[in-house]
Design a protein around this nucleic acid. Structure first.
Lengths: 129, 129
DNA sequence: CTTGACCTTCCCCTAACTGGAGGCCCCAAA
DNA sequence: TTTGGGGCCTCCAGTTAGGGGAAGGTCAAG
């Protein structure tokens, strides 16, 4: 398979696939013409990476997850711990965003949003509360 | 005021303040020795920027908000629109993160997390569902 | 006079790609 | 046989919003 096929089948852009090779996440062989030459196992790895990234794991997390995946004698506890740490970062981000959302929602509700210059949003940002 | 004082009073790191000058958000005068020389108005702007950034507005949003703030004849509707657009981006991010959280939570609950290699998390990532 | 704190500019680094330039490679049509 | 259009290659630069640190100027106190 050439990179275009793998891109279509994995749903990852070709650029991303080359990048993953650059940073050592995959190691496709090369054809004589220099083209990357992917086998099913590469495609499988890329799909794995795509799913892990979609769950918000960082590239370094993905590297560890792949290593664990390929280690037949792994402990599932190691995977779970990684997932739990990631989960707690996600929870933190959600809480931060919710705080922003709540403040903004309140400000937006206070603002007439018409053609007059009086604006509670700017007033709040300027510290005149 | 020197940058250290402004940093303390605004809560922004000196690096950030220099960066904001670099990108034209503030334009402090200079003393004869080359030091930045801040007046109260600068401090006020920086506090404004700090609050807007804390609400998750991008730098470019901040630039527009500042312009609106300084435009006495602005329409509050313009500010409200900016805030509403930002709010919708935040809602989207929250929804994305919540979807990740839910999937991860389920996977974590399915995983024994012990020393055995069998792991539903890796199984899911590998696509064997 | 020296020391230490503070200030300056400059450059590189982050995460995870994305876009583009310049240049091969390959296949099919005219 | 040539030409055209994709697809592929590598390398470089840019993205966000600053952070880290080096090399060097400035200032106040002891």
């Amino acid at each position: 398979m050439n990179i275009g096929d793998v891109s279509t089948r994995s749903g990852l852009p070709a650029k991303t696939i080359r990048y993953y090779e650059d940073i050592g996440l995959i190691k496709p062989r090369r054809s004589e013409n220099g083209y990357r030459c992917f086998v099913e196992a590469d495609l499988h790895k890329l799909a794995f990476l795509g799913r892990a990234r979609a769950l918000g794991f960082t590239i370094e997390d993905c590297r560890m997850l792949m290593a664990l995946y390929e280690d037949e004698s792994r402990a599932s506890g190691d995977v779970k711990q990684l997932a739990l740490e990631h989960l707690s970062k996600i929870e933190t981000k959600i809480a931060d965003l919710e705080a922003m959302r709540d403040t903004l929602t309140e400000l937006v509700h206070c603002c007439a949003g018409d053609s007059r210059p009086d604006c509670p949003i700017l007033k709040d940002l300027s510290g005149k509360v």
